[in-house]
Structure formats: C-alpha cells, structure tokens
Design a protein around this nucleic acid. Structure first.
Lengths: 217, 217, 217, 217
DNA sequence: TATGAATGAGACTTCATTCAT
DNA sequence: AATGAATGAAGTCTCATTCAT
C-alpha cells in the first residue's frame, strides 16, 4: 500500500497539514520537479519521517492523487443530487459554476489533475488517467441519458458524441479558468462574478442551440 | 537572445538534428525532467557545445518552443488558405483532421505545447501561453468573422464566445487524440481512419446544430 | 554486557525466534549490510524492543556470534566423545562429515563464522577470531597428541604443523562445501551423498599418505 | 562497460591513485560498507567525478576486481615460468613463498579476493568466484599433470583430489598469513622470515609424505 | 516493559554548468 | 569553435538510535 499505518494513526491535523503541503508541492512543481527535501523543510519534519509515512515519492503522489480525486467526486456527487429536477442544460451550467467555485476553494487540486494528464514521466499514469476519465465520463453519460428520456436533446444524436462534446467544453472551460485565475490573476473571464456567469450561460447556450443559422433545418 | 550566432552558423542538418532531439527530450521528460547530459549524449556532441549554442537549459527550451510554434503556425496558415471557399463548419472539420495528421507527423510538438500549458515550474510560462493563445484565438476569430459576414452563423451569438467554444472543442479533441494515440495506442477514436472522420463530423455537427430538441426554435 | 536482563527473562521461544532471525540477517547481509529496521520488521516486534534487549547493533552481533560458537562447540564435543576409540584419520573423516551435516542443518551459522574471518569493519573482530581459532586448534591438537601417543603419526612431525595442515584441509573443505552448496546448489562435491564421502576419504588419505611416490622412504 | 573513456584517458598517475584508494576502501570496508563519499574525500576529487569514471559503485568494484585479478595472474604466471625445471613440491613451496611476498607487497588485493568469496550481497558474485576458481584450479592442475608425467606423485591418486588438497593447503596458508599479518601484526608464522620458510617447507613436506607412520604401507 | 514516531546523518547518484585546453 | 573533465549542490532514500507514551 502507498500509505503506512504510521501515517494513518497520526494526529488528523498533522495529516491534513502534510497532505496540503504535498498537494501544493506537486501542483506547483510537477512530479519530477517536486522535492521531498523541500517538502519536509516546509513542514518542519525530519527527512526520515515522510518516508516512514509513505513508501517513497511515488507512494506519496498516489496518496495525494487519490485524496484529490475523492474530493472532486464528493463535490460532483453533491451537484448531481442537488440538480436532479433541472433540465440538462441547467444542470450543466450549474456543474460549470460549481467547478469554478471548487477550483477557487481548492486551487491546487485541479492542477494535480492536469499534471496527471500531461506529465509523461509519471509512473502509473495510464491507470490514473483511467480513474479520472472513467469518473467524468460516467458522470456526464448519466446526465445525457436522463436528458434523452426526458426528450431534452435531439434523439438523432449519438450519446457518446454528446458526452464527449460536453466534457470537452466543460473541461476546457475550467482549464481556461484555472490557468488564468491562478497565474495571471485575471483574463478572459474577468476577475469578478457577473462576467463569469455570462460566459457560462453563453457557452451552454451554444451547446444547446449550436452556432448555425436557422436556414439549415 | 536565447540562441548564439555560433548555433545559427551551424550546418543546417546538424541544427535540425539538435532541434529534433531537444524536442523529443523536453516532450517526453518535461522541462524539469529533461537532462542536458542525456541530450548531449544522444546527440554525440560535447557537453560544452550545447552551452555555447544556447545560454542555458531555459534558453534551449525557448528556442525549441519558438520553433515548434512556428511549425504549427505554418501548418494552420496552409489549412486556412486552402479552405477559404468552404463554409465555417467544413473549415473547422478540415482543421480538425489536419490537426490530427499534424500530430501524427510530429508527435512530440503537440506534447511540448501541452507541457507549456500545464507545467508550473517553467520559467516565462505566461509569455509562452500568451503566444499560443493569441495565435489560436486569432486564427479562429478570423474564421468566425468571415462566417458571420457570410451569414453562416446566427447573428445573435457573441464572436468571442463562439471562438472560445470552437477552440475548446477542437483543442480538447486533439488532446484526447494525442493522449490516446501516443500512450495507449488506441481508444475512443479507434485506431483506423474511418472512425476518426465520423467522430470529427459528429462533433462539428453538434457545434453547428447544438444538442437541444426542435422545440426551441 | 551485551545482553540485557530483559532479554534473558523473555519467553524462550521468543528468544530463539529472535536469535534465529538475527543469525539469518547477519549471515546473508553481513555486518554492515544487516539492517536493524529489516530485522524488527521480520520479527514483528517494536523497534525499541531490540534496543532494550541489546545495547546496540554490535551488542546483538556479539550475542549472535557467541551463541553460534557455542553450538559449534557442542557439536564438536559430541563428535570427539563418540570417536575416542577410532584412530586419528578415522576421527578426522568423521569430523569432516559431521561438519558437513552441521552446515546442512544450520546453513547460516557457518556463514557467520566466515563473515567474522573476512569482514574488516567488524568491531572486536580480533577477539572473535581468537575465540574461533583457539577452539579449533585446541580441538585438533588434542587429536594429534593422542595420535602421537598411539603411534598413529610419524614422530618426526611437528605437532603444530600437523594441526595446522589438518585444520587447513578441514576448514577449506567445509568452506568449499558451504560455498557450493549454499550458492550454486551443487558443484565439485556433487549433490548427493556418495560423492561427498568419496571426496572426504580421498582427502583424508592424502593427509595420511601424502602425494609423493614410494621412492621417498 | 564498467569503465568510461573519461577514466581511461586520465593521467596514469591519477588513475593509479584512484585504483589504489578504491582497492583499500573495498578491502577494508567490504562492498556494502565501502563509501563512495569517503572515497572521493580521501582522493580529494569531486563526488561527481568518480561517477563520471565509473557507471556506479558496482562498476567501480568490477574494475577494481578485474585489475586485482590481473595482477595476481601476472604474478602466478611468472612463478610458473621460473620454476618449470623444479619438481612439484619445490614448485609449490616457491609458489607459497611467492604468494606471501605478493601479499606483503599488495596487502589489500588478497583481501579483495577474500571479500568476493564471502560477501553474500555482492552483485555478480558467482561470476567473480568463477573467474578466481577457474584460474587457480587451472594453474594447479597444470602442475599436477606435469608432475604425474614425471612420476613425482603416486599414480593411484586422483588428479582432482590432489589439486583440491593442494589448493586447500596453499589457500588456507595464505589466508592465515594474511589475517595474522594484516590484523595482529604477527602470530603463528612469526614476524620474521626464517620462521615463515620453515613453516612453508614443513607444510609442503606433509603434502608430500603425509602424516601417517610407516606401519601402514 | 513495550511501543513506534521522530530523528538527521549519510548512503548512492544525477544535475546544469564552467573553463582550461 | 569544440571539447570533455571537473564541480558541488541537490536529488531520493535507508540507517541506527532515542524517548515520550
């Protein structure tokens, strides 16, 4: 296992402090760039301690990743449960805004996710990507199928294609937000709140109605 | 400047060999993970030489990035010029397929781009991201505006939003393709060609017509 | 002393378990290579316990060594007592075969002995070697002197030289057996039993009669 | 390969200094106990340098071992060539004394050999032991066969047994000398020269004539 | 008495970079 | 202009040992 009992039996406050510092380190430096030395120094613990908590650097990363994924899952589950009576496009809009507020609250967790997607030298990478994709596709497929039954989307559209496009737009929206918000402070989406909501609703509207003029149908 | 005159005066074949090896190294290992030692060993040149060509590791990366971006630009420019008579959605579809064939031909260049997006420890990262975004947004904005004049898209749609959604879908499509094709060999998009084209046209259709049922209009 | 009273008051089974695990660890890894961490993990006891039983790593080794030597002594004493009525060369042959069966029964104890001989970084090494040599020389000197009184060996031979040569051949025979048997599975001496006995009797015959031709006497 | 060209092209004096320091370190501390840190500090070179000369710790050891073996071979070859006209037992006696003087001149090389024999955690150990045994058995087998043709040893003696006993006595004699001379300063063999030669000739005499009285034949 | 978390020195190894040739 | 030996800081990880509980 990646985590030792030593770690599990630690004072919860200390556990949280370590997890949080590790998330930050991996998120800002990447897997290869992250330094166990720096981490323990920041935490003010002995070098040996971190290796008694986790088997090695990779074990620590796995733990960090699992915790991060778990938090995202909890968040999405809540959004899903709170929007069962909404129509598809309202749900998507709410998911989008919830995603933004999640990133605001946990700025580094989303970066961990992005790291996993794009760092080639990460051990076990394919497995991790599998975990992510499986969950997000599952989440959206459920939405699409419910919507089809309710007649909210055109029946001639392939469910997989629909889920893909939705995921693309949502994910890319959050990527864009994350990049701007965390690095540049502000950008396309504006710093405030109004701007953001208008963006979200605009994007969802395109998903619903498309870009094409009426002439085509 | 990042590149010394010494390098520029090199035999073009040698220059190309160095560039290509550097692209591969950065793409597969990331900025932090890439090793100048390994690079010169692969190239069979002296360790001192690479530092006489480029100021330091970062200088080499900047050069690599600029060259990669230039290649992408050339490619896009050609697609743009070859599709001026097509309507927006045909152009987008052709752009998408051209993107896939570019990734196939230059597997590591797209990875460099992804690295830049998601590696936090990269110096000058914001500038680089700016370069990319500016160009891709510019490219698509041109498409959208031409299309608006021709009445190919609904006039009530904000151009910026349109460009964003288009970029999201295109970029995410290519990310997906890149990840699957390079790592797992095959996946969502299938290994062959037919599958891919059906996916592309399905995705573009959603961009044109949206997901929503007929009731809306 | 090297061993604490705490240890001596332990349940005999537990004591034996600890001794046995320690022998194995030192024998397979050497003094420097042996790890207290690994040892306590194998034993399933607390890290602090082993240090309450023995002053430190060296104390544990001293205890292990003493116990091992004691076992060897007991074994040899028995062989000596069971062969009092045999002539010298029969006694030596029986000692040799007894040595082989001892190594078979306690594969790691002989390795401990070899370690002591050849590991330079072992503290107190000279004392330990003294213990070993003193005993084995004593054992053989007794044999030689009894044999001299009985007229089984030539009177012109120096007792010390005789004891040395005997020890050399016996010891080297067992070293060879140990190395082959434990590492390569089989070798010079063959895997089975017959082969071994023929070897032993051949070697002893040379000790008795020498290699030289009949012209010599 | 274990040795880099960087090392081979070094100033011969520096090469010798490094080899010598490495031999000493491995001989006195064993493979596991030897420290690359300590070695470079003793040598006054940078830590990185030693790793540019040899792939890693094991590579350095392999080099050291090969060099040591080569020196031993050269020495034995010379003894063999200088004693072709002597009878077997004279040759053995000269070999023995030559061995002692080799150990005196290169105190640590013999210890390297002993290390290889008895350190279990050494990588590639079996191969190394093979190299040693093959050579020493080959050397002695040649002696024995020449002696048989000349009628210097009894024809009823198995050649393999003869070679084994000879090797046992010679090797053990040198082990004993090495241990005493290097650790305790003096011991069984005496510190001076006379003592030693009397020992050698006594031991060889036993090999030739055996221990047994005349009654037996 | 037993526990096991904490420690920090030290292990091997790779790194980007410099500079005399 | 090109070389490649030298550097030493920093990397991950293991070690024997201590001490509060």
């Amino acid at each position: 296992m990646a985590v030792s009992r030593t770690f599990e039996q630690l004072d919860p406050k200390k556990k949280k402090r370590i997890l949080s510092a590790a998330i930050t380190e991996f998120a800002t430096e990447g897997y290869a760039g992250a330094s166990m030395n720096v981490l323990v120094e920041k935490l003010g613990i002995a070098k040996g301690s971190i290796f008694s908590y986790f088997q090695d650097k990779h074990g620590l990363f796995m733990f960090v990743f699992e915790q991060a994924l778990e938090q995202v899952k909890r968040y999405l589950r809540r959004v899903r449960d709170e929007t069962t009576s909404d129509d598809l496009f309202t749900r998507l809009e709410k998911t989008l805004l919830a995603g933004v507020s999640f990133i605001r609250a946990h700025p580094y967790i989303f970066r961990i996710y992005l790291r996993v997607l794009f760092e080639g030298d990460l051990p076990n990478r394919n497995t991790l990507i599998g975990s992510i994709r499986q969950h997000s596709i599952g989440y959206l497929t459920e939405f699409v199928e419910v919507a089809k039954q309710r007649g909210e989307i055109r029946p001639d559209i392939d469910s997989t294609v629909a889920a893909f496009v939705i995921e693309a737009v949502l994910d890319r929206f959050l990527q864009g937000y994350c990049l701007e918000h965390l690095d540049t402070g502000m950008g396309l989406f504006g710093a405030g709140g109004d701007e953001l909501e208008r963006w979200a609703s605009g994007v969802i509207a395109v998903l619903r109605d498309g870009l094409g003029g009426q002439s085509q149908r």
